[in-house]
């Protein structure tokens, strides 16, 4: 039984998350206090969900891209573009509180995010460029586009419907969580209840072989980049709506790296061919919990990054089966080579 639990792909990510929470429980019990404030729940755990939401969204898209053996470095820039375009449209309108205008702004920026994803898809699947280079183009150019849209300034909006996306509340919980839940359910259903997940994994394992087996590799790759762009676009809306402003310079800066980290912590291989959406969610929550923990316990900003790096290093070591075996082999005697090989693949 224990063996089965500890072999589950979510076991180690969840253990790490539990360890982080346990640390907070001992060091800062206020971390767990949740109260009703202004008609909704209020507390650090809620903050983690709220601020983790955009990262989870981006990471879900990234998971599928990585599953095809690709990578998308442009998500941070797409985050900046979609936030900038939405805020620009809302701020230029006569009545910022009009629901119609906000919906139009949301639709336009999500449309643009899809176009960005399409661009990546064309370069990777159409032109056949290496994903890391193809998406690097939009990563650099995209931030320029965002700054062009905002004219390098911070655009402030005061629109209640727009603010609701990232700072609104539904049934005591942040509205952004429901967006994330919907996207996650859609992605999980599409990939696990239809053959799409299998297609993605097979393309990630071997695109040529998949094509010969009758899978349209190109279409699959197109689809995942578009989905990833859409996810990043939604994340950009949440981020900019949370502070009611768009900052082309800083919105989503380094988001691609956090997203890739979340995917890797979740157990998805960067080589492609296998992915875990639920693991990604846990990975993103680990990153956000770590960030919040660092703020709560008051780590000096000069060494924050070192602390983060240390924790990430530890997480990756714990995730590595080889490393765990080296550690535990001292206690486990009388194991034969053949036996280990058999248990290895359970």
């Amino acid at each position: 039984m224990w063996n089965r639990i500890s072999k589950h792909h979510l076991f180690w990510p969840l253990m790490v998350l539990a360890a982080l929470l346990l640390f907070n429980l001992i060091y800062k019990p206020a971390f767990f206090s949740i109260r009703i404030q202004g008609g909704h729940l209020y507390g650090s755990l809620i903050d983690i969900l709220n601020y983790g939401a955009p990262l989870i969204l981006v990471a879900i898209g990234m998971t599928l891209v990585i599953a095809t053996g690709g990578i998308d470095l442009s998500v941070g820039s797409i985050v900046a573009i979609s936030g900038a375009v939405a805020c620009l449209l809302v701020s230029k309108s006569a009545d910022q509180n009009s629901l119609g205008i906000v919906l139009t702004a949301v639709a336009v920026s999500l449309g643009l995010a899809i176009v960005c994803g399409l661009w990546n898809g064309v370069l990777v699947a159409g032109v056949g460029m290496q994903a890391i280079i193809a998406t690097l183009i939009l990563m650099v150019a995209g931030r320029g586009i965002a700054q062009l849209v905002t004219s390098g300034q911070i655009i402030t909006v005061s629109s209640n419907p727009y603010e609701y996306i990232g700072a609104g509340w539904l049934a005591l919980l942040p509205f952004s969580i429901f967006i994330v839940a919907a996207v996650w359910l859609a992605a999980a259903w599409l990939t696990r209840r239809t053959a799409l997940g299998l297609f993605i994994e097979s393309v990630g394992s071997n695109a040529t072989a998949s094509r010969l087996a009758g899978i349209r590799s190109r279409s699959v790759i197109f689809a995942v980049y578009i989905f990833c762009g859409l996810c990043a676009g939604m994340a950009g809306l949440i981020l900019s709506s949370n502070v009611s402003s768009a900052d082309g310079n800083n919105a989503g800066l380094w988001y691609e790296l956090d997203a890739i980290l979340a995917v890797v912590i979740g157990g998805t291989s960067l080589n492609g061919g296998r992915f875990y959406l639920s693991g990604t969610v846990v990975g993103a929550l680990i990153i956000q919990t770590l960030t919040t923990t660092i703020y709560m316990i008051g780590v000096p900003p000069e060494i924050t990054l070192v602390v983060k790096a240390f924790v990430v290093f530890a997480v990756c070591l714990v995730q590595s089966e080889k490393f765990r075996n080296v550690l535990t082999s001292k206690w486990r005697k009388r194991r034969y080579q053949a036996e280990r090989e058999v248990t290895h693949h359970v």
């Binding site: 800062k28 206020a30 971390f31 206090s33 507390g43 650090s44 903050d47 601020y51 911070i154 981020l239 949370n242 502070v243 402003s245 900052d247 800083n250 919105a251 960030t291 919040t292 703020y295 709560m296 316990i297 008051g298 000096p300 900003p301 924050t304």
Partner: peptide, 25 residues
Amino acid sequence: VASQTGDFTRAKGKEVMQSFLQAHP
């Protein structure tokens, strides 16, 4: 009682302040 970087941005300022408020009532 607490000092943390907010990177000169609104988003970080909000996130960090939210944690400050939890940690120091």
